[in-house]
Design a protein around this nucleic acid. Structure first.
Lengths: 124, 124
DNA sequence: CTGTATCCCGCAAGATACTG
DNA sequence: CAGTATCTTGCGGGATACAG
């Protein structure tokens, strides 16, 4: 019951905590969207990330809010309006996202590696 | 029918392909280990990443090999010896890993955000 | 509009045993 | 040592309906 960074099993790897935080499923598209295009209402996020269900979107937004990466603002109007925005802490991930975007140039090499691998094993 | 990279569902987000490739489960500890500590035999990886089962380790290593991020060398000895090493392409992820490691300084802020969030919602 | 509440399902991953 | 084979399970996630 260690509240701090007690050695989690798969952690031969010091970057795992950040990976778990930032790169769990759906979090990247949400953070990217809020970072690139500014604040969004719930339904706007739903429309941008077309395949996410409302349940899962809610789950991920709550998690991101709890982690301090996203802020939620409730406007008690009729109809109600809720706005999600990235926080300063969330914005601090931008260089990290940029690093990843930079590496995308290598995706072609990955494709070629896969083709070579598969070609060398025709039947399996 | 998009001529280019046809718009995958969750891709309001151009970095998703790299995220799926590099940050799927178990891949980060494997790549980190091979990158930091050099080539490893199968059993050595098992010992470093203590909670992974041999089945899953094999699956992930095959995937990484197919993607060109890891190389596998089989030595037909008795007993057999297999060595896994990171490739040049895999090593090119190092700056990305460094970005993530750098961001780890912010984990304290995440912890505090969680405490604040939980404190504001005692019973749920 | 902004969610919750259920129910259900598939698949990644764990446990265990076994092979070359 | 370096894996495979088989079985089982947990949980994320989809679908749907409903509430404030």
């Amino acid at each position: 019951m260690e509240t701090t960074a007690d050695i989690a099993p798969e952690q031969a790897c010091p970057i795992s905590p950040v990976v778990d935080l930032v790169f769990s499923r759906w979090t990247t598209p949400i953070l990217w969207t809020l970072n690139e295009y500014g604040r969004h209402r719930f339904v706007e996020l739903e429309r941008r990330i077309t395949t996410i269900s409302p349940k899962v979107l809610t789950q991920r937004l709550r998690q991101l809010e709890r982690d301090g990466l996203v802020s939620r603002t409730y406007h008690a109007e009729v109809p109600p309006r809720v706005e999600y925005a990235i926080t300063d802490l969330g914005r601090s991930l931008a260089p990290l996202f940029a690093s990843i975007a930079d590496w995308s140039v290598n995706l072609g090499k990955v494709d070629r590696a896969r083709q070579d691998y598969d070609a060398a094993r025709p039947t399996g």
